[in-house]
Amino acid sequence: MSAPDVVPTLATGRAFRALLVRDLTLAFRHRGEMANPLIFFVMVATLIPLGVTPESRQLAALAPGIIWVMALLASLLSAESLFLADYRDGTLEQLVLSPQPLWLMVLAKITVHWLVTGLPLTLLSPLLGIMLSLPAAGFGSLMVSLVLGTAALSMIGAIGAALTVAISRGGLLLSLIVMPLYMPVLIFGASAVQLAVDGMSPAGNLAVLGALLAFSCLLSPFATAGALRVSLHG
């Protein structure tokens, strides 16, 4: 960061793309790991009717909130792995030392994280909507809110993942420090779906979700980069 000789933008852009491709390739080589949060997502959806009620009217009333809470938990589960493998094999150290701006490299990793968790969660969510008898009016709003919301969750989760990467058994700690920060996303995401189900326009809520995403895009890469430096070098 302190280097006065600016690295050419082309190289930076290429590094960004290279990291993006590398992480995506790695994610697809470990498809099983990638599938875990999704399986969790669907499995908890099975528990709800068993634990609460199979009665479709009651399920429909709970569905927006439940689907959103589960998406949040699935995203949280996967956040731990964001930097862990790279930390263990030393790649993270190389990234921190590389001449490219660290926040940009972090942005690439977060983008991949969202592509392999948030996006599949969103694509899977209609299935959960059906399982939990979500009224038809809510589906569009559910998917749009999840696309925006899971991206924001990935951004926020990255900060926690970076802070806890060097701590052994940091997973629980990660949940503790990240969950309060997730709450605004949950509130606006779940109520966007609820509003659509109730026949009102969710546009305002979706706009707020977009704003939260924009804000987290501004804040998170820098906070995450700083957190990674602290984690690695104290």
């Binding site: 060097a166 700690l173 503790l176 420090i177 939260l212 602290v230």
Partner: peptide, 30 residues
């Protein structure tokens, strides 16, 4: 909890400070 999880005192302070600052940016939103 984050402060206690770090064994290195200096890193603990910095990590907790980063988290506190992120929390501060989020408190009005929350």
């Amino acid at each position: 909890a984050l402060h206690y999880a770090y064994t290195n005192g200096e890193a603990a302070g910095k990590a907790a400070a980063v988290l506190a600052l992120v929390g501060t940016a989020n408190i009005p939103i929350i």
